[in-house]
Design a protein around this nucleic acid. Sequence first.
DNA 1: ATGCTTGCAAATTGTTTGCATTTCA
DNA 2: TGAAATGCAAACAATTTGCAAGCAT
Lengths: 151, 151
Amino acid sequence: MERVQERIAEIVVSLRAEGYRLTPQRMAILRALIGNRDHPDVEELYECVRIEYPQISLATIYKLVNLLKERGEILEIDLGNSGAHYDGNNPAPHAHLICVECGAIEDVEVFGTEWFICIEQEVAQKTGYRITKCCTDFFGICPRCQQESEK
Amino acid sequence: MERVQERIAEIVVSLRAEGYRLTPQRMAILRALIGNRDHPDVEELYECVRIEYPQISLATIYKLVNLLKERGEILEIDLGNSGAHYDGNNPAPHAHLICVECGAIEDVEVFGTEWFICIEQEVAQKTGYRITKCCTDFFGICPRCQQESEK
DNA sequence: ATGCTTGCAAATTGTTTGCATTTCA
DNA sequence: TGAAATGCAAACAATTTGCAAGCAT
């Protein structure tokens, strides 16, 4: 899991380069955000960071998350109902798979980055749009929830 | 535009079959929802129906829209910030193209329904999920907004 | 006549903002 | 030291809910 440290270091460097400060709270949020495959929402980040910093406020989480989102360091996953989730591990475009039963969110490895670049180019060419982002979400029922409902 | 009447008729039949009632307000909302390529949000539907029914309330719009969404008759398009938009024309899976500058939303014709079925099957096979829905959104800048910012 | 639907207002939920105080660089 | 970040509370926006009265079937 050296990756996690690397990814955090990347973000730290990038923020510092722009004059942003790295407070201990921000470091804790980064740690909660990066390096879990959980795609947490703001509430989960809050609960996680609160263990270390019981004083932390939701506003602080929102502010950092928005900053990182604007800078393209994390991906926002919007499921329509309820709050947004965040993917801090992989800023490259990739699809997500969401279980509508238990709410689990996982990355889809089936299509690589090249695949996204390819379909983005095709759409750009046929529509004249300058494409900046593409998001693909699959909704369904995960194997575990299927088993449970089989009973 | 016979299509529009057809589509409305389809929905009317489907609702009536389940014991739902077709009030004049609901008919007006359906007309506002189906048969414009605008992908309206709730506010736009509200303004539209209000011309005919100045008394109508947002709650009524929300209730019908949720009913139709649950029944798979319309598609919800969630852009993260601000309210959801709806696509009543085409319940089959298809991608959307969103201009981040002017907010326009259009259907992407590049990939057909078969294409979606194909990638859904591939994901299902590789992950064990039972896929129920796939949504693909391309974000970018439309040709018109590109020209405008060129000046 | 029955019970689904309406429309109002109030309640919820998720997120943002203003500001005085603290703190990193 | 000075600008940026924190944390609190209040403000906001989108959506949902409860309920009395109305209306489609």
